[in-house]
Design a protein around this nucleic acid. Structure first.
Lengths: 159, 159
DNA sequence: TACTTAGTGTAATCTCATCACATTATAGAG
DNA sequence: CTCTATAATGTGATGAGATTACACTAAGTA
């Protein structure tokens, strides 16, 4: 099982998370010949400011503060679309918000641990769980293409 | 495992689903001394018109067509809140839409099978899967309170 | 250089959801 | 039966999230 729980849900030096994510993103985009333009990278960096999902309009505010001029929704939504397509971020449907993906180089299903006290979100990849989910779906005759699991509760630090 | 896959994802007499859901809802609300008022029951009936999740504003349109006069958002959102609280319907976050719960009398986690072709949604309760999910969360030190699983793919009829 | 494609700026619009406040209906106490 | 407290509804306005359409600019390539 891969997870970023130890970072997202415990004390840690967060700058390292952010730097690592950006470095990884740059490398992946270079490999894929995908253009991580300045505005896209800025959005990714802002998303990685914390382990809490951030909404599109909060991003717009922060972008405006940095840029010193008005930023309109399509600007940020286009960057978000790119980052989603590249698997560098995820959207948390129940929150209408976005979170950085800690392992964009690994193909995986979506499994999020959302702390209802501090708001931070960790991500997991658990092959065995994915299999159990696939099996359950198969028992009903359903052909699964992908899934999304949102687990809500209290993180280690908030218990 | 409980599921309504055989109804939601196969040919069936849907009137029976709708009638059964309404009868069950009336019984549960009577037991709980919760008031299933006419407008709330109408919203529940409209939601049970099909196994596809329906958005709040689509409900408003249908309510207006039935009532012959304007219906405003709070009207339908209040009915939805009541039905959600009573566990008679669920919200599918990825769709911003609502679906009838086929077993509101059983406490359960949320597990939805969303067909991307016909749009119908079935619901499952699988204790073993819930346990596997709880176990995975526990391995990261997370204290789970509830979860939501959205599985997307092709239903039996659409394969 | 010219051309083609990808990316960005901007205004308007659309969908989903909530707030605040007035009014009406209902259940339970006396 | 009537009064009262509470629950439910009606209504307009507004907030929050997301998309469309169209003009313009930058980057990569023949």
């Amino acid at each position: 099982m891969i997870s970023n729980t130890r970072a997202a849900h415990r004390d840690h030096n967060h700058e390292r998370c952010q730097t690592a994510a950006l470095t990884l993103a740059r490398g992946l985009c270079r490999e894929r010949r995908a253009r991580l333009t300045p505005s896209r990278e800025t959005v990714l960096r802002l998303i990685w400011n914390s382990h809490c999902p951030i909404g599109a309009y909060a991003l717009i505010e922060q972008l405006e503060a940095e840029a010193g001029h008005r930023v309109l929704p399509p600007t940020v939504y286009r960057a978000l679309d790119f980052l989603l397509t590249q698997g560098l971020i995820h959207r948390i449907p129940s929150r209408n918000a976005f979170i950085g993906c800690p392992f964009p180089e690994v193909p995986h299903q979506n499994l999020f641990l959302l702390c209802k006290r501090c708001g931070s979100v960790a991500e997991c990849c658990a092959g065995s769980l994915d299999q159990a989910i696939a099996k359950t779906a198969a028992r009903t005759g359903f052909a699964i293409s992908h899934h999304l699991l949102e687990i809500e509760g209290l993180c280690h630090q908030c218990q």
